[in-house]
Each structure stands twice: as C-alpha cells, then as structure tokens.
C-alpha cells in the first residue's frame, strides 16, 4: 500500500487558505483577458460601466445571483475590503474542498475487490460492469511495477 495522502492534503489546504485569505488582496484589479477582450471597442468609466462604442460585452446582463452574500468575492455587510475579500476566499476554499472532496469521495472505487466481488450496491455494480476489467488489471500492473 502506498502512503496516505492526508498529511499532504492538510498542508496543501493551508497553502490554499493563505493564498485565498491573504494574498488575494494583492491581486491585480484590472479586468482579466476575457473581460478586456470583450470590452474592446467600448469606452468604460471608472466603475467599469460601458459608456459608449460597440463591443462584444455591450449586451452583458446582471448575474442571476448577484445578490448572493458572497457575490463578487466579498462578504456582504463587511465594510473592511481586506477582511471581506480574505474571508470570502477562505470560505470559497473550504466550500470547494467540501463539495469537490465530498463528490470525489462518494465516487471513489471502494476497497480493492476483484470486479466480480464488488457487487454491493446496485450503482456500484452497474459502474463496474461498464468499466470492464480494466481497472483491476491497471492497478495490478501498477502495483507490480512499483514493487
């Protein structure tokens, strides 16, 4: 068996929290490559609102969830910009890890049973039949090589 990844994952999360919670405040506030390309041909005021001209972004509409408490990477009601951006980043990292980690944990192959022995839940069974005999073979060959 290979080493467990948990120590690395915790360390990586701390780095991500630091980046999103603190370093994010020093990010460039200029429009990104997509935004700036879409504004080409239009004139824009200091607020970033289109004031004239013709450009791909002129039909842009508001986001469906523009009033979300974390919209635009800030915490609504928090006046301190530094804290607002940082806290939204920290919440975003934790939420993304929870959603992503949760989904991937539920989707993962369980144990190392051969395909015929893996028939516990109906879904797992259906998956393993579509996946065919490849994963165990793959695993075995990898394990063999790493020995």
């Amino acid at each position: 068996m290979s080493k467990r990844p948990w120590g690395f994952v915790v360390g990586g999360l701390l780095v991500a929290l630091l980046l999103a919670g603190v370093v994010s405040n020093y990010a460039s506030s200029h429009p990104d490559g997509l935004d700036s390309s879409l504004l080409k041909g239009c004139t824009v005021d200091a607020e970033g609102e289109i004031t004239g001209g013709s450009c791909p972004a002129q039909q842009e509409r508001d986001h469906e969830l523009a009033d979300s408490p974390l919209a635009d990477y800030g915490v609504r009601g928090l006046d301190n910009d530094f804290l607002s951006t940082g806290l939204s980043g920290v919440l975003g990292v934790l939420l993304t890890f929870a959603v992503g980690g949760g989904v991937f944990w539920l989707l993962r192959r369980r144990g190392a049973q051969p395909p015929t022995a893996g028939a516990q839940s109906p879904t797992a069974d259906a998956q393993s039949t579509t996946a065919g005999p490849q994963p165990p073979a793959d695993d075995a060959s990898r394990a063999a090589r790493s020995r």
Partner: peptide, 12 residues
C-alpha cells in the same frame, strides 16, 4: 482527497 485539494487550490 487529492482531487478535493486540487479543486480547492485552483479556486484559491
């Protein structure tokens, strides 16, 4: 868990 970390890191 590594995939969860990768998603969180990309978000950051």
């Amino acid at each position: 868990p590594m995939a969860g970390l990768v998603a969180a890191f990309i978000f950051a």
